[in-house]
Computed example of a mutant assay.
Amino acid sequence: MSLYLHPFPHHHHAPDGLQALPYTRNGVRQLPAGTFLKKEYPTFKELYVTRHFGGSCRGICGLLPSAAFLDGTVKPHEQTLNSRLARQRELIIGDGGALAKPILLLVPSLKDWWADTPEATGNPVRFAGIDNDYVLQDWAPEGPIRPVPLPPDQTICIADGHHRAESHARLASGQGPESPFYWLPVVIMGADEVRVDTFLRIIEPPDWSPAELLDKLRPFFSIEPVARPRPPQQTGDWLLAYRCDFYHLSRREATDDTDSGWLNATVLPAVFGITDTRSDERISSVYHKASPDGPVLFPEGVEGKIILRGFPLPEAQFFREIAANRCLPPKSTRFEPRVPSGLLVWIP
């Protein structure tokens, strides 16, 4: 059965050409009147993104019922963090169901779908971000505005927004369309147009010397010291940084599991006693950009901590995990481009 994307009956967006989007981390309803422009007509939105490092992608924006995120129609791909879920629930309730940006969903490809649909109809809103340029425009099918079927027989999964989607959907459970939590704003893109990156794993170190840490890791990895922190070049490889020294790690054990899944199931419990990355405060995930050729640059405040960076999950393996209904550990992937908060806003 096809999943239908519904048009926005109304929507809000940032003014065209802003140099910086409104700060929405604490909600949108508390911002001054006029921060966003309200449009009172029904429409879908097209989001066109041009990357500064090359390439572009195109997404379709609209509304999906929250039930689609609970019944398995839209699949998660990674576990959520307990602390983030609690904060997100509190924020959504306090903001009356409003969301500052849509949930990013992926299908394997939208190219055939776009080929059979009309062009965007105008009213562009432009925003130049740090890494990407965005153009948000109205889009509508030919004829009257109506729900449109999404590509049949394609897996639909969450790429970014797991905590927003889960919190919203739980609040909407058992409620009808009149609930402020019933509809979720989404932007759907093809996985063949986005890029998968990874997070740094930051671990609070026990009182170990570098030699002691390496001894504990050797049952799981072959280890080679390196002069510079280069990003891993293939699945199974990791970069380790500790006390200003860098090491190339190669997994000894062949496995069908993902690198992040294997790390969580084997290395973290055995070496660090970390059995639940959803709640253990000794480990966190931080995104920091790295070019494929490196070197990896580390954020401030991680000096003296144990840092691991893996190889980004290949797209084919990503969809195999989704098809098998397996969820990756939290913060296993980071998809680019990100949808900026405050560009397209849903206020029920």
Rank of each mutant, 00 (worst) to 15 (best):
I93Y: 07
N132R: 05
W208D: 12
L110A: 11
Q175D: 15
P314N: 07
F220T: 10
A324C: 09
D207G: 00
I283C: 05
A115Q: 15
E142K: 08
W114T: 12
S250G: 04
Q233K: 09
Q233W: 03
A323E: 15
V226R: 08
P15M: 01
P22C: 08
W113M: 14
G301H: 06
Y287R: 00
C61P: 00
N132G: 05
D215A: 15
P147N: 04
R252W: 12
E212F: 02
A169F: 11
S291H: 02
Q154C: 03
P147G: 01
Q317D: 15
S56I: 02
A265D: 14
P42T: 02
G174E: 13
R58D: 06
P299Y: 05
I156N: 01
L70T: 10
K39N: 13
R146E: 13
Q30G: 01
Q233N: 02
H10P: 03
Q233S: 04
P152V: 04
E193F: 13
F272G: 11
L106R: 04
L37N: 06
D256S: 14
T277M: 06
P206S: 14
F311E: 04
I145E: 07
D259A: 03
E253R: 11
H6L: 06
A33I: 13
L200A: 12
Q137Y: 07
K45D: 00
T198R: 12
W113N: 15
F220D: 10
L3N: 11
G17W: 10
L268N: 14
K111F: 04
G174W: 11
F44G: 01
R58I: 03
W183S: 13
T117E: 14
G62T: 07
L18S: 05
A191E: 15
R89F: 01
A270H: 15
G54S: 07
V339P: 04
P205I: 13
R218L: 14
R58F: 02
F246T: 12
R58N: 07
A290K: 00
R84F: 01
L150F: 14
I274S: 08
F199E: 09
E178S: 14
F246A: 04
K305A: 09
N82I: 02
P185K: 09
R25I: 01
T80W: 01
L85G: 00
A254T: 09
K305M: 15
Q137T: 15
F8C: 06
C57F: 04
Y242T: 10
I145M: 14
V267P: 10
L328S: 15
I322A: 14
H52F: 00
Y247Q: 11
S179K: 09
